[in-house]
Design a protein around this nucleic acid. Sequence first.
DNA 1: ACTCCATGTAAATGAATACTTACAAAATAC
DNA 2: GTATTTTGTAAGTATTCATTTACATGGAGT
Lengths: 194, 194
Amino acid sequence: MAELSERQKQIIEAAIELISEKSIQGLTIKNLAKKIELTEGAIYRHFDSKVDILLTILFSFQDEAKKMLNDFCVADISALQLIENLFQHHFEYFAKKPAVASVIFSESIFQNDNRLVVEVLKILDLHEQALACIIKKGKQTNEIKSTIAEKELVRIIIGSIRYTVTKWRLSGYDFDLRKEGKLMLESIKELLKP
Amino acid sequence: MAELSERQKQIIEAAIELISEKSIQGLTIKNLAKKIELTEGAIYRHFDSKVDILLTILFSFQDEAKKMLNDFCVADISALQLIENLFQHHFEYFAKKPAVASVIFSESIFQNDNRLVVEVLKILDLHEQALACIIKKGKQTNEIKSTIAEKELVRIIIGSIRYTVTKWRLSGYDFDLRKEGKLMLESIKELLKP
DNA sequence: ACTCCATGTAAATGAATACTTACAAAATAC
DNA sequence: GTATTTTGTAAGTATTCATTTACATGGAGT
């Protein structure tokens, strides 16, 4: 992906803020222009289309995910600790940047544009792979029971996180996501025990 | 909820079909009118608004869920068997009626209308309660390990189902949902063992 | 000073959308 | 059989949205 100009960065940042504030539906060119005090036409000097903006947002999330997950599994830390870190990081992250959840969980809106779906799937895959690596390690060190296939464990863990976040969003953010995340983590750790 | 006229039933059915075919975005009054060979105005003889139509759809899903779940837990069947039934029914159901998943998973679209969110939450609650009842039973009969709180187990199980369905939808329905559901079920059963 | 290009604006365009209105016909009631 | 209500139609309206167009401006390079 090409480097972003300052203006492009500003637009992307504003777009993410808009999504945080009013969910994905709040992201319109008009709102975007208003937010950075430009005209709508000016936006099109920097991005070809709205889909382009969304793609750029997804790319930036991918980058963040890659940075976070890159040396997650190689570190010399126990698998259970790694899972704890993963949980903590994610719930912290979603609580701080609801826009990410809003975008990643908005698959239904993207279904008219396959490129967007593909990029969301890539983000999911990044997380699945990191988690799969951790689980493999945990099985080897006998921290994690080996009677359950990796693939299913990955889906169970990610599904649990997602559902917790979904309920948080639907409730209008009316509970403490970090606290609920901690409870979920403890339960998952208990479940994984051999 | 008032009884539905024949015409209303026809409209709701067509609406659900539209959602199945092109996801929630495909549900427009124009498409709906075309599908049942009426004019758009005629639709408004039977429903006040589009939100009204969506609410009616959600009510019908609620009814279905209630019927299905009502005597789910009281039956004289083992908890693990009940969970198996629940899984089988759900994956079967989603595979047959993708519209349901499309609506229930479209929370992001509903966020501009709180009534819709509330009704989606009710459907989720119905399922959570049924599952909570099963788990409680299973703990009593020692079929399910009692070291993990009910609430978390419920979220883990529903989260696993939802994530499996989400990946199925994003993949363009390109894997066998029932088969993956079966694998997930086996893993969950294994996890729940005391 | 002149040119050129990047960046901006204001206003339009065109398409989609939910919904309304004025009127007609058909079913129902009496 | 006539009046009334229900259900339909055709053609709007109003709004929202992404995107385009014609034109302006300001700065960089020569």
